[in-house]
Nucleic acid binder design. Structure first.
Lengths: 156, 156
DNA sequence: TGACAATGCTCAGCAAGCTTAGCAATTGGA
DNA sequence: TCCAATTGCTAAGCTTGCTGAGCATTGTCA
């Protein structure tokens, strides 16, 4: 009875699948100096600049992690940090032209990176359920401010 | 039109969901000095000791990463490293009694950590599809040796 | 047998999660 | 007005992914 992955708990399958897909992304992204985390940021600031903390909330990571990811993006020239005149504690993250070009070119390969699954819609729905259940819903505050609930700080 | 997570690509949802679930695990595991990665190892060596490389293949991580995870487990006293007399390059990873006790106590909380999803069976099937598609099937060699395919080295 | 390739593991270094601790700016109440 | 709490971000340190490089052992073949 050779141990087989079919018996693994779902949480473990989730971790492994996510890691493998992220790795596959890395293979596509590394040649343009972008990471999967950076890709998410470029996506989030597609329309308007956002403060660092708001980015963190939306991506469900801590402000510290987001700070470092943005720092790398900035070094690559894909985003720019702008001081918020209305609140000097804040730094707004803004996409550069180069960042926009790179991001727009990526949409095409998105389909080739993520493998085809039979019941994709159900998969999406399940993942959203998990995220909502475990991670809360940090999108309530809205893009123009961050006055509402903390992202996932209810455990600190 | 406030940006909402529902529009995110599935790969990104997968990453976020996996991370959130892993964090929840950490909250339960940290008080006993165990990590999610360590938990997987304790699971894999439940029956018999396995060489480090075989563990890496089954968990779909690199040998270096597995080496470090096992090192931490060893420091916590949950596994033991035994030299393989038949191949002195190898180190067999073996669960200690303490490791067995801890692992057995964890099964109970497994259900409380992973949230309930409506179509759990479809979710599992989808995750397995992704893993098989992206990560290959490194379980072919069998537990008593590692003579077959490399885990995910076809890209090196 | 002796040289070369393959295998198993380790070391060093990077990215991206996390935590705790801390500084600066803003807000709010006495 | 002024002090204290809150908020936004940074610093330092840990784990776990990764890569590339390197050492020891084993296997293979001339």
């Amino acid at each position: 009875m050779r141990d087989t992955i079919d018996d693994w708990p779902t949480g473990r399958l989730l971790s492994v699948a996510a890691r493998l897909v992220e790795q596959r992304w890395r293979e596509s992204l590394e040649r343009i100096g972008l990471s999967h985390a950076g890709l998410i940021v470029l996506h989030l600031v597609e329309r308007d600049p956002l403060p660092l903390g708001e980015l963190a909330r939306r991506a469900r990571v801590t402000a510290q992690t987001m700070g470092r990811t943005v720092e790398h993006l900035e070094r690559s020239g894909y985003v720019r940090l702008v001081a918020d005149p209305s609140d000097r504690r804040r730094k707004l993250v803004e996409r550069t032209e180069e960042g926009g070009r790179v991001f727009d070119g990526i949409g095409a390969i998105e389909a080739t990176v993520f493998p085809t699954v039979e019941q994709a819609a159900v998969l999406r729905m399940s993942l959203l359920q998990i995220i909502r259940h475990v991670g809360g819903d940090p999108e309530a505050p809205g893009p123009d401010g961050a006055d509402d609930g903390p992202a996932r700080a209810e455990r600190g």
